[in-house]
Design a protein around this nucleic acid. Structure first.
Length: 638
RNA sequence: GCCGAUGUAGCUCAGCCGGUAGAGCAACUGAUUCGUAAUCAGUAGGUCCGCGGUUCGAUUCCGCGCAUCGGCUCCA
């Protein structure tokens, strides 16, 4: 029999007997590579290590250290988990079980709820399966046979999955290990024995196929890594992330509360939280003014009739609150655009006036479902740094690009990385196809011109137009939408907005809805987690605290306090009869940037000794030297 | 809204099989006058989330509600 030629991962060629598998080929090449190899790619297609090679195949290895390798490992662990669940809970039906960014999950239908304690039992069983070193075996079946197979095994979800495959799919692949068989494209690891480190994390409900009309299944989340060390590191990271939770820090740093008696999703800002919020808002006002925005303010409630005209009543009603005033129905605003359009309409506009940029720190109310509320991130009343830009179609591109630059600038100031998505037309929407296409194209072009990369989020646009969304991540890597740019041809139409063009004729302006930080509440939540509560100097609610060594220095301390406060620095005092170490510890836990120590030496020389939050002592300095240092450090932000 | 878990002092948490509750920190009082992450002692503090039910008796068992947490769906 003639040998077949293979291109090895390093580009070299080798000949093997026909039917040679990936594992066999690699064994004779660099055997040690098999230790950390999870799967392989043949001519660019991911396959199992047991896959036989054909003449002319180009072979690559997928190592467990690669993103794809880890994902394959986790996917295999999810199969092992499914096996363990069915061993312990006979009759549990399996739905889907993919690997995800930080691990994997598997969805099950089972008569009773899995308790958190059950996870331990499942883990124990999984360890047995791993110890047994069951090989993962692939086989292919015609789709009809596969459907019959799963029907017989009492797995209706698998039957449905196969049934919904595209018509041209004639065969499907199954993977089995230790008596468990799953519908799966693969590839998988060669044996359960390759699994070294995993942990089941939590149980949650999840709708079948993500549709709330469908049955709710039970989802078990877990994670897995190539080594025990990596797993431990990840679990440690999770613990650390919990310490950054803005809800925890909000209480510890006395920033805000959410009070059960006051209502869900409603934020009550404490003095320090209010300082932080005002600093952010002041920064916004300054930056908007620089960029040609005019500040405006609209009312909190507007007649329901007006919301009908805008389309909100038909398309956004479920999220709105209504109230009645002297027999008239009013809608509490969920968005700020209506007032802004009325301002535009208050007089005849010329093309020379455009673009017009109205900016409002607009407080809105939206009825969010109970289960989605989340600290500052998802609330029922929030304030947007909202603006509406009315411009001619030819100005659109420059306006969108300027906003995107503004967002980029803001993110740099606050130190964030972000992801960009383009959200297209949703099912429930207003406007013509043509308008949607123009609007979507305008957003795409502006992003292209700005050299931005983005993902497409199909069908996730606002009901009146497509949008560019900027997403920030919280401590647990959950994404939150903050900035957004929405292009709208339809509301100007509905409100009959116009301007007089060069030709003396009436024309329709285009409207951009946009926020930079988004909801101030949400932004603060992300900000708190981003800095773990240790705000940069310019944002710190308390920038410095004066600490006396003993009571003796209180009069001098009071004098210094006055001088520092007069310099515009947010300073507090801790003149309590406690040891210095105690006061330092407390200031440290409050994450105050500067602790200013006052004792004998300082009183004599008329100085203070600043200690930085990072533990560094600056030594004795004059009060004015300190205040100018702080002012200098804040100058570029204020 | 849906699935699951949780709800005890300001905070973090104990509390067995039903017999009306404890610790540490914080607070308050006193002593100490102290130099860069916790001085000592004492005192006070609770509708055990709420409302019903079972029981001689419920923080504990059951039901309903409210809220929080993790997800799903939905969104800034």
């Amino acid at each position: 029999m003639r040998e077949i030629n293979i291109t090895l991962p390093d580009g070299s060629k080798a000949s093997y007997p026909p039917g040679v598998t990936v594992t066999e080929a690699i064994s004779s090449w660099h055997k040690e590579k098999l230790k950390s190899a999870i799967a392989a790619r043949i001519n660019g297609v991911s396959v199992d290590l047991s896959r036989p090679l054909q003449n002319g195949d180009a072979l690559e290895l997928i190592d467990v250290s690669s993103e794809e390798g880890l994902s394959i490992l986790r996917h295999s662990i999810s199969h092992v988990m499914a096996q363990a669940v069915q061993d312990i809970f006979p009759g549990a039906q399996v739905a889907i079980g993919p690997s995800i960014e930080s691990g994997f999950y598997y969805d099950f239908e089972y008569g009773q709820a899995f308790a958190p304690e059950d996870l331990e039992k499942i883990e124990t069983r999984m360890k047995e399966i791993v110890a047994a070193k069951h090989p993962f075996q692939r086989r292919e079946l015609p789709r009809e046979e596969a459907m019959a197979f799963f029907r017989e095994r009492g797995e209706p979800y698998k039957v449905e999955l196969i049934n919904d495959l595209p018509g041209d799919v004639k065969t499907v692949s199954l993977y089995g290990q230790g008596g468990y068989v799953d519908l799966c494209r693969g590839p998988h690891i060669s044996s359960t024995g390759k699994i070294k480190a995993f942990k089941l994390l939590n149980v949650a409900g999840a709708y079948w196929r993500g549709d709330e009309k469908n049955k709710m299944l039970q989802r078990i989340y877990g994670t897995g890594f190539a080594t025990d060390k990596a797993l431990k590191e990840y679990l440690h990271l999770l613990e650390e992330a919990k310490k950054r939770d803005h809800r925890k820090l909000g209480r510890e740093l006395d920033l805000f509360q959410i009070n059960e008696d006051a209502g869900q999703g409603l934020i009550i800002f404490h003095p320090r939280g209010t300082v932080l919020r005002n600093l952010i808002e002041d920064w916004e006002k300054k930056e908007h003014k620089k960029r040609g925005y005019e500040m405006v303010m609209g009312p909190q409630i507007l007649k329901a009739e007006l919301w009908k005209r805008s389309g909100h009543f038909d398309h956004y009603r479920d999220n709105m609150y209504f109230t009645e005033v002297e027999g008239q129905s009013y809608g509490i605003k969920p968005m700020n655009c209506l007032s802004h359009m009325l301002i535009y309409k208050s007089k005849i506009r010329s093309y020379r006036d455009l673009p017009i940029r109205y900016f409002e720190l607009g407080t809105v109310h939206r009825h969010e479902k109970t289960g989605v509320l989340h600290g500052l991130m998802r609330v029922r009343q929030f304030t947007q740094d909202d603006a509406h830009i009315l411009c001619t179609p030819s100005q659109l591109n420059a306006e969108i690009r300027a906003i995107a630059d503004f967002v980029g600038y803001a993110m740099k100031i606050f130190g964030f990385d972000y992801e960009v998505e383009l959200s297209t037309r949703p099912k429930d929407s207003i406007g013509s196809d043509e308008e949607w296409e123009m609007a979507t194209a305008a957003l795409k072009e502006a992003m292209r011109d700005n050299g931005m990369s983005y993902e497409i989020n199909e069908g996730d646009g606002a009901f009146y137009g497509p949008k560019i969304d900027f997403k920030l991540k919280d401590a647990l890597n959950r994404k939150w939408q903050c900035a957004t740019i929405q292009c709208d041809f339809t509301l100007p139409e509905r409100f009959d907005l116009s301007y007089i063009g060069e030709d003396g004729e009436k024309h329709r302006p285009v409207m951009l809805h946009r926020v930079i930080l988004g909801a101030i509440e949400r932004f603060m939540g992300v900000l708190i987690e981003h800095y773990a509560g240790a705000f940069p100097l310019w944002l710190a609610p308390v920038q410095a605290v004066l600490l006396t060594v003993t009571d003796k220095f209180i009069p001098y301390g009071e004098e210094v306090l006055g001088r520092i406060a007069d310099a515009g620095i947010r300073v507090e005092k801790d003149f309590r009869n406690e040891k210095l170490g105690y006061k330092i510890r407390e200031a440290q836990l409050q994450k105050i940037p500067y602790m200013l120590v006052i004792g004998d030496r300082e009183m004599e020389s008329g100085q203070i000794s600043p200690r930085q939050r990072d533990g560094q002592n600056l030594g004795a300095v004059g009060v004015e030297a300190f205040t100018s240092l702080v002012r200098e450090k804040c100058a570029r932000f204020e």
